[in-house]
């Protein structure tokens, strides 16, 4: 290997090989993937994010929520995401089409906190649906609604304001130590509202054709070990 031109050529082709094979091939094969138009529903799925939620996604990005929360539900049998005896993080596994409309795909790589891909379709620890009010209080101080939670407080997404006329419908109902002084209320800022709108839009419940035929590991037959190895 003493000829520089050969070395340069080899180094170039090695990376070109993987660039063409991984990046270009994927871009060509499913980079132009389209939405699924459902004539019964009169809509193209996945749905476009509503404006407030789209703004909330920017808040999610600038605060770096992706550092601790993934947004991908793995298939049944691979990790504890869905299926029987699972954490119930989704109704089905995430598929490529779910992310079609997202300008920035935030799959994430750490689960310091739970997955959020299907948050709005899940139940909270108390078994109820996630509501804006619940999320406001959770983000203001997670311990208010989930005593064990270890997420930090994001109180800077809220402001204290004087009540003028009627109290704001978005004002947080807070217990004693947190309650603001009389005549004041704590309401989410515009960013806080947008973030919650985004979280409430996280819902992958629509069943695409490709999600109906996914591989699920066969049930082990009686007397047979699950792995199939001795």
């Amino acid at each position: 290997m003493n000829r520089a031109p050969l070395l340069f050529l080899g180094v170039f082709s090695a990376l070109a090989f993987s660039f063409v094979g991984l990046v270009l091939t994927n871009q060509l094969t499913y980079g132009s993937f389209t939405t699924h138009v459902d004539e019964d529903e009169g809509n193209a799925f996945p749905l476009q994010l509503p404006g407030a939620a789209a703004q909330g996604k920017l808040v999610y990005q600038d605060l770096g929520c992706v550092s601790c929360h993934t947004q991908q539900v793995r298939r049944e049998g691979f990790g504890p995401d869905i299926g029987e005896h699972s954490r119930g993080w989704g109704e089905r596994q995430s598929v490529a089409r779910d992310y079609l409309r997202e300008e920035r795909v935030l799959l994430g790589s750490q689960r310091v906190g739970p997955d959020l891909r299907n948050l709005a379709a899940r139940k909270n620890a108390a078994g109820a649906d996630f509501t804006a009010d619940w999320l406001y209080r959770y983000i203001f101080d997670p311990k208010l609604v989930a005593a064990e939670s270890s997420m930090p407080r994001y109180a800077f997404l809220f402001k204290t304001q004087k009540i003028v006329g009627q109290p704001s419908p978005k004002a947080l109902a807070l217990p004693e130590p947190y309650a603001p002084e009389a005549g004041h209320e704590i309401v989410p800022t515009a960013r806080g509202e947008a973030l919650v709108a985004y979280l409430l839009s996280l819902k992958d419940t629509y069943a695409y054709p490709e999600t109906k035929n996914v591989y699920t590991p066969p049930e082990p037959k009686a007397g047979e070990k699950k792995e199939g190895h001795e």
Binding site: L15, N26, Y30, L107
Partner: peptide, 28 residues
Amino acid sequence: LFWFPWIYSIAQVMLVFSPVRGTVQSVV
């Protein structure tokens, strides 16, 4: 020497400046 500018510019273009569709981003 050669690879860094290649992978970095591709990643910048395909992820930040003119994002590709969906999870092609994740592959890139």
